[in-house]
Computed example of a mutant assay.
Amino acid sequence: MSQPSTCVLGPHIPAPGTSGESHLAEPDGGRSVHQGPGQSAAWRVLVVESDTGQAETLARNLRRHGHDVDSVPTGGEALHAHEDADLILLDLELPDLDGLEVCRGIRTAGDTPIIAVTARGTELDRVLGLQAGADDYLTKPYGFRELMARMDAVMRRARPRTPAPSTIVHGPLSIDQGSREVTLEGRRIPMTRKEFDLLCLLASHPDTVIPRKRLMQQIWGDSWSRRTVDTHVSTLRNKLGASTWVITVRGVGFRLGHG
């Protein structure tokens, strides 16, 4: 197993009273950074990094830019946690699994944007990373501003600008496609990314039975099983408080009900 490499988020600044030791410098001198016009939107970012210090520094800097950040140290945890993320920063040097395999696993499960962040810097490494499903590839050490720019570019490609999304109202159920928030009788219902996508697809066609195959292909892509949709439907019913919110049409698929 290779040793974790040092990720530099800014210039090395010696701490007072020391010489030669390197520290991770935070952007803008560690001051809180607020978004202004033209800056990136807030995303849910999953940091997959085995080095605790690097992960904490990166997460802190991202939060200062308004992002919601989760961090996991292993590939196995990343394969379980990626579903809720809008963007994944994936170190390829992980203690349990090869980062390329983790990248392939996440890409097989869905289309969440991935930026490989690694010390593997040869042309072959970059080619293998991109072929494994990474949307971009950033070699350590790197500058934090470059990372932010690459994140913006990847998200622009993944989510091109479209007309302002609407809010779907179905009785007491409200689905805000812009903020990806669901409320029922004014109470916010927390949803994972796939749960929201499933509910939104059903609500977009409230009087139509959506075939199971269409649900799976549109939400999960090529990697799916019958159990996957059944599990998510069951979870949706529990969160909405009634099994009649999602109606099963045996042998066909599902449609939105009225709770």
Rank of each mutant, 00 (worst) to 15 (best):
M1T: 07
M1K: 04
S2Y: 05
S2T: 11
Q3T: 08
Q3V: 13
P4W: 14
P4E: 09
P4T: 08
S5L: 12
S5T: 04
C7A: 13
G10R: 14
H12S: 07
A15T: 01
A15S: 10
G17T: 12
S19V: 14
G20Q: 10
S22E: 13
A25R: 09
P27Y: 02
D28E: 13
D28I: 08
D28M: 14
D28A: 13
G29W: 13
G30A: 15
R31C: 08
S32I: 08
S32R: 13
S32P: 00
V33C: 06
A41C: 00
A42W: 01
L46E: 10
L46T: 12
V47S: 04
E49N: 10
S50W: 04
T52Y: 07
Q54A: 15
T57D: 15
A59S: 15
R60W: 12
R60A: 15
L62S: 10
R63K: 14
R64E: 15
H65S: 08
H67V: 07
V69P: 10
D70V: 02
V72Q: 06
P73M: 15
T74H: 14
A81P: 02
H82D: 10
H82M: 00
E83G: 13
D84P: 02
D84R: 11
D86E: 12
D86C: 03
L87I: 05
D91V: 04
D91T: 04
E93L: 09
L100S: 05
L100E: 04
V102R: 09
G105F: 05
G110A: 06
I114M: 08
I114P: 05
A116T: 03
A116V: 09
D125Y: 07
R126A: 14
Q131V: 02
G133M: 02
D135V: 03
T139Q: 06
K140M: 12
K140T: 07
P141M: 04
F144P: 02
L147Q: 06
A149I: 04
A149T: 15
R150T: 02
R159S: 05
R159V: 01
R161W: 01
T162M: 07
P165I: 14
P165M: 13
S166V: 10
S166P: 00
S166K: 12
I168F: 12
P172A: 13
Q177P: 00
G178Y: 03
S179D: 14
E181K: 13
T183P: 01
L184C: 12
G186C: 08
G186K: 06
P190H: 09
M191C: 11
E195D: 05
E195Q: 15
D197I: 00
L198S: 05
C200N: 15
L201W: 00
L202H: 07
H205F: 05
H205G: 02
H205K: 05
P206S: 04
D207K: 08
T208M: 02
T208S: 07
I210L: 03
P211G: 10
R212I: 06
R214E: 09
R214G: 00
L215N: 03
W220Y: 15
D222N: 15
W224P: 00
W224D: 15
R226E: 12
D230M: 08
D230C: 02
S234D: 06
L236M: 12
K239A: 10
K239T: 02
L240A: 11
L240D: 04
I247N: 05
R250E: 11
G251P: 02
G251N: 04
G253C: 11
L256H: 08
G257N: 07
G257E: 11
G257F: 09
H258S: 13
G259E: 01
